[in-house]
Simulated assay, not measured.
Amino acid sequence: MTLTLMDSYTLWRRMPFPSGGATEGLRMTYADLAEVDEYLTTVIRFIERGIFKPSPADVPAIVSELMERIDRLCAESSGKDLEVARAQHAYAALMALLYRQFLEAAPAAE
């Protein structure tokens, strides 16, 4: 079973934004997640108004690099910080999936 664009969108809109954690690394990835979250407003416009206009930023590359950083933090963390890092990773993975599905919807939108 595969998630559709609407499934991913619904999950993303309902998923709580992860916390920042206690370390500087987790606080930085938290800030970067918030920035990427802003780029995904392009998806909201598409779903809610049918306007297909991708972000000028390279969202897939940004999210990929962010997930690599969070993976390294997962390897270095324990306890509550590990939980935070895993939550951040899950949120980033969902954003990556949603944005990829949004981009794949382009031909149908044009």
Rank of each mutant, 00 (worst) to 15 (best):
1 M>F: 04
2 T>I: 05
2 T>C: 00
4 T>L: 03
6 M>N: 11
6 M>W: 07
8 S>C: 08
8 S>Y: 02
8 S>E: 11
9 Y>G: 01
9 Y>E: 08
11 L>Y: 11
12 W>G: 04
15 M>C: 09
15 M>F: 09
16 P>F: 12
18 P>I: 15
20 G>V: 07
21 G>I: 11
22 A>L: 04
24 E>W: 07
27 R>C: 09
28 M>R: 13
28 M>A: 14
30 Y>G: 09
31 A>H: 10
31 A>M: 14
32 D>Y: 07
33 L>N: 13
33 L>A: 09
34 A>G: 15
34 A>D: 14
35 E>Q: 12
36 V>K: 03
36 V>Q: 04
37 D>G: 09
38 E>I: 08
38 E>H: 09
39 Y>G: 06
39 Y>L: 14
42 T>G: 06
43 V>D: 00
44 I>G: 00
45 R>D: 15
45 R>M: 14
49 R>H: 12
49 R>Y: 15
50 G>D: 13
52 F>E: 01
53 K>N: 04
55 S>A: 13
55 S>D: 11
57 A>V: 14
58 D>Q: 10
59 V>E: 04
59 V>P: 02
62 I>A: 11
63 V>L: 13
63 V>K: 00
64 S>V: 04
65 E>Y: 00
65 E>K: 06
65 E>I: 00
66 L>R: 01
68 E>D: 12
68 E>R: 12
69 R>E: 07
69 R>T: 12
70 I>W: 00
70 I>A: 03
73 L>H: 01
73 L>F: 01
74 C>W: 01
74 C>E: 01
77 S>F: 02
77 S>N: 05
78 S>D: 09
79 G>A: 07
80 K>M: 05
80 K>H: 09
81 D>Q: 06
81 D>S: 09
81 D>T: 11
82 L>E: 01
82 L>D: 00
83 E>Q: 07
84 V>Y: 00
86 R>F: 01
86 R>H: 04
87 A>L: 11
87 A>T: 12
88 Q>E: 08
90 A>E: 13
91 Y>N: 04
91 Y>V: 15
92 A>I: 15
92 A>Y: 07
93 A>G: 14
93 A>K: 03
94 L>W: 07
94 L>V: 13
95 M>Y: 00
96 A>G: 11
96 A>W: 04
97 L>F: 03
98 L>G: 03
98 L>T: 08
101 Q>S: 02
101 Q>N: 07
103 L>N: 03
103 L>Q: 07
103 L>P: 01
104 E>G: 05
106 A>M: 10
108 A>H: 14
110 E>T: 08
110 E>C: 05
